[in-house]
Design a protein around this nucleic acid. Structure first.
Lengths: 211, 211, 211, 211
DNA sequence: CATGAATGAGAGTTCATTCAT
DNA sequence: TATGAATGAACTCTCATTCAT
């Protein structure tokens, strides 16, 4: 990743990164917001620090007061967004019991969020190539969360015994349906998509009479 | 001055791109193979033409005898690989009838292929950011192929009515399971993964007694 | 990917091109001066940005802080120099009335300027091939200025009716005499050349008695 | 000029350049013709050997059977064309006596030629930067020819004593008028231009009554 | 003679990062 | 803290020229 290590700090004495004043906090926030737009629109490699600080309305040099590098900014952003996705889905989950319907609700929340924050989608996806560790963290965490829910369902007698494989399968379904109907297509009927996904999870592909 | 048109019409005074001799074909192939390794290992942006031609054992300039640009090479590669994946899965499909088991076999073939050609996986995925059109083509085509199979199953009375949503859901499952157990983890028990995925597709998440 | 628009609108995320500090202005000037020498000596195509910034004593990258491209620099230079030529001739003209002598004085000033700034001569001439529009602008403007003077002379009863053809003819004379005796030959007797040119304009080729 | 002297022949044993068969002569001619078009349209630096040989319908390698380098081709072309211009003007001159009218006829012939062979114009002009020696040769020779005619006129009592200055002045006039009305403008009234140029040479700028 | 694949020096351009003000 | 000029390594792409077939 780090192509230019010309003056990489060999020791651990990081430069000051945490804003110490209100003004500083505001500047940091402006940069983060501008970066979200920029990365979302152009992707990591076509985005540039000049352009980001330009959008943010701050000087180029100010960037390095708050972030150690372009990569570091990107990771910060991915973690931020990973949190946003979780926060969008969490309350929905809290309000449901360990029934299958809960997964459907979570999925509906996710679909809606994805279609309204396409840039977040794109940024997290690109992290696979730009910040693989952060990306793995995001998906492993998310899968673990799904797996936990599945086990609750099993404990409640609402599902058979399910594990990591099913968790990843569901996550993959969600992500690809989000991509296809939330991001690629403008104005798809998300409720319809959610219903069909739910049916798939409930009954599989078989004819209801059994096939 | 004199900028190069991407995808210029093949007429005019453009350089020849199609090799006209056996030696030319061999060189082109060497470059393609080296590029597959390079892109697979380092990703598009960290890969360089110098490094690719270096690996291929040809001169830098030879690259431009056969490819118009780094982008063009990447697209050629993605299309190549899209074809490879299909070719790995196709014979398996041909040998099965329109039963659910066919999907499982296709998935097993895909999983095996992915775990043995991790770089292909990575390259096609990165195309989302580097060559979005080519990437879309790949996934739309693949989804269409799955959808057609699902409809055959329905016609044979082996499944309920299924469409694009289910096709993308299955594709997402496959891709994420491939990523998690074929690429991220070395030596996972792929048969086990395939069995569980099949069960999920067959019966959904419910307890067999119904839940 | 992401090609740079030549002459992009100054809005957007383009890099700043206008120096905002005294230091910036000085750097820009150093580059311009070095470029004048380099282009004058070696011509546009044999000149390189590395070499220009080397002469200027600034880093390669600094060039792109102030100029969008090699072409853009060249055009800026041609316009600068077009102005220099005009400024060298203008005061001489201001001090003369609408007599033929004024053309001779203008020509003398031009000849002197050309022989002392041979590089300017060369640069403007090469613009015909490197920046045709800028070149045309220069010559059309110059011709228009000459034509206006000729019409003043006519109005004052000092010349017959004269137009664009005569203006271009005079300009061609001036340029070629400047080339031959100001640039090609070191130390030619410029006053002598000017006198003969004046005689030609005054009387034509004929014997004074008429031929 | 010669940027790549990697294997410049230090000795004088030039490669075979003169075609020895009819087929060879034809090939050489095809290249020359294609080059004239290419250089005329795109200028020296934007023209390439691949493109020239492409237009000529011969293999790239064949080029070096007949020409030592791109520069050498260009010079050969300039000399060719210098001859063409002369050949277009010469017969006109032969048919006239040493009167002023002869210059006018020569000019008319030149103007017509220029407007019908704009590419020749462009090529000879660019030689100032690409092959300065060849360019000088052309203009010194042409000027000498004009000067000789002027002296004949003087000897015949049709003109005052005239020399190199007047020859270059006339040449400059011709070239710039050719550029302006033969090349820059499509379909200008060349006869009108020639008439006014003749009047200028005959009488100068003055009012006929004397000014 | 003809062919066209191979070569590689060299050019223009980008942009993350540093640092003096 | 904020600023923006300066830096230079690294990259993509061009094309005149060579040479084996």
């Amino acid at each position: 990743m780090a192509k230019r290590d010309i003056a990489a700090t060999p020791s651990g004495d990081a430069l000051p990164r945490e804003p110490r004043t209100a003004r500083g906090r505001a500047t940091r926030r402006k940069i983060l917001d501008a970066a979200a737009k920029e990365f979302g629109e152009k992707g990591f490699h076509e985005s540039s620090i000049v352009s980001i600080t330009g959008r943010a309305g701050v000087a180029l040099g100010s960037f390095y007061t708050y972030f150690g590098s372009k990569d570091e900014l990107f990771q910060a952003l991915v973690r931020d967004m990973s949190g946003s996705v979780r926060d969008a889905v969490a309350p929905v989950i809290r309000d449901c019991g360990p029934e299958l319907e809960r997964e459907a609700s979570a999925f509906r929340a996710f679909l809606g969020f994805a279609s309204e924050h396409k840039e977040i989608y794109r940024i997290i996806d690109e992290a696979e190539f730009v910040a693989p560790q952060t990306w793995q963290d995001h998906y492993l965490t998310t899968a673990a969360r799904i797996e936990a829910r599945l086990q609750e369902m099993h404990a409640a007698g609402n599902a058979r015994e399910l594990g990591e494989v099913e968790a990843w399968a569901i996550m993959g379904m969600n992500v690809f349906l989000g991509l296809r109907f939330g991001v690629m297509e403008e104005g798809a009927d998300l409720d319809h998509v959610a219903d069909r996904a739910l049916a798939l999870l409930r009954d599989g592909l078989r004819d209801e009479q059994g096939g």
